[in-house]
Simulated scan of single mutants.
Amino acid sequence: MDNDKQDLMRLIQVKFQRLSKGQKLIAEYILKHYDKAAFMTAAKLGNSVGVSESTVVRFANELGYTGYPTLQKALQELIKNKLTTVQRIELSNDYNSDVNALKGVLKSDMENLRATLEKINYKTFEDVVRCIFESKRIYIIGLRSSTALAEFLGFYLNLILDNVKVVSYGVSDIFEQLINIEESDMVIGIGFPRYANKTIEVLSFAQSRKSTVVAITDSLLSPLASKADYTLIAQSNMASFVDSLVAPLSVINALIIAVGLREKEKISSTFSDLENIWEEYNVYSYKNKEEK
């Protein structure tokens, strides 16, 4: 068992006898179902054990937290990288209808965007944009569910720059694709819980070659952040078997736009050429074309 988790569970056990009857019900529930409690609101947790929302708030205060959100965050930090897919599916059972799933997921994604706006470091963001232009080559890696994010970032940066490579599984091994990496290069690693070991290994390798390392991840406590010179935080909490990639994608969008704004003339020329190619080869449907 993780030491931090032991500490939190031990704290609840030590305080247990001094808790009120209602608070003891909360404590017992968290000790048995901490993975579910971490994603419940104070009202929902209270309803699950038959106590009021205010009792849940007082319980958090009794443990030394400033409020329930800080206790909830502590629980989430402990378990978010440990939940198996099966456990995530069980958490998804709270969405007991299609409409509830829609509302719940949209609200969760909006919260992730709001939290990201508050947490992200604007100076770091500017430094990352600067480093993109200063780097000789840019390598992007994101595996598992983060593959979509890496491909998206790579697709658009390749339209703006000519030194971008997305590293992925294929005919050659990932490290073979990085064999020529050097100090003047940059590696952007993208990863969210549960973090892919290979992504972490690639960032360590880049570190050993003294390349600039950028991590796009969910926390400064992330194993990707520990390997990075610059870390862009994007919240991805989702009580489901599906990872929430809305906030990370928004940060990546901002990164692409910030880079593009510095290369307006090149982008204009590139997209002008692409529009002609797309039309010539019928890449897109052109509704305004005259029907034959």
Results as ranks from 00 to 15, higher is better:
Ile89Ser: 03
Lys103Tyr: 12
Lys73His: 04
Met40Ser: 00
Tyr284Met: 07
Ala42Gln: 04
Leu261Met: 06
Thr212Gln: 12
Gly154Asn: 08
Ile257Met: 11
Glu176Gly: 11
Phe16Ala: 10
Gln17Cys: 11
Pro223Ser: 14
Ser211Thr: 11
Ile89Val: 10
Ser250Lys: 15
Gln76Leu: 12
Asp94His: 07
Cys131Leu: 09
Glu182His: 07
Ile141Lys: 00
Glu280Thr: 14
Val14His: 14
Val164Gly: 09
Leu220Ala: 12
Tyr281Arg: 01
Phe39Leu: 04
Ala42Cys: 06
Ile252Cys: 13
Thr55Gln: 08
Asp218Tyr: 07
Tyr68Pro: 03
Met110Gly: 15
Ser54Asp: 11
Leu153Ala: 08
Leu203Glu: 03
Ser168His: 14
Leu63Val: 15
Met186Leu: 10
Ser168Ala: 15
Gln23Ala: 02
Leu159His: 05
Thr55Asp: 03
Gly260Tyr: 15
Ala234Gln: 01
Lys36Thr: 09
Ala60His: 01
Thr212Pro: 08
Glu280Trp: 12
Ala42Lys: 04
Leu255Ala: 08
Ile79Asp: 03
Ala43Phe: 03
Thr66Val: 13
Ala150Glu: 05
Gln76Glu: 13
Lys21Val: 15
Asp173Asn: 00
Asn121Val: 06
Gly142Arg: 04
Tyr284Ile: 08
Ala37Gly: 04
Tyr29Ile: 07
Lys80Ile: 10
Gly67Met: 08
Arg209Leu: 10
Asp127Ala: 12
Ala148Phe: 04
Ile181Lys: 01
Lys36Phe: 04
Ala247Asn: 01
Leu91Tyr: 09
Ile174His: 00
Asn276Ser: 09
Lys15Gln: 12
Leu232Gly: 07
Ile188Val: 09
Ile141Arg: 02
Ile26Met: 10
Ala101Val: 01
Glu279Met: 06
Leu249Arg: 14
Lys227Ile: 01
Lys289Met: 05
Arg18His: 14
Phe16His: 15
Val251Lys: 05
Val167Tyr: 01
Glu53Met: 13
Thr217Ser: 12
Ala247Ile: 05
Ser184Pro: 03
Leu45Asp: 00
Ser20Asn: 11
Tyr65Glu: 03
Val213Trp: 02
Leu143Cys: 01
Tyr169Pro: 01
Phe125Pro: 09
Ser168Arg: 15
Ala43Thr: 07
Leu106Ile: 07
Phe241Leu: 09
Ile216Tyr: 02
Ile190Asn: 07
Arg209Thr: 09
Ile30Ala: 09
Ile179Thr: 06
Gln87Arg: 13
Glu77Cys: 02
Phe271Ala: 00
Arg88Ile: 03
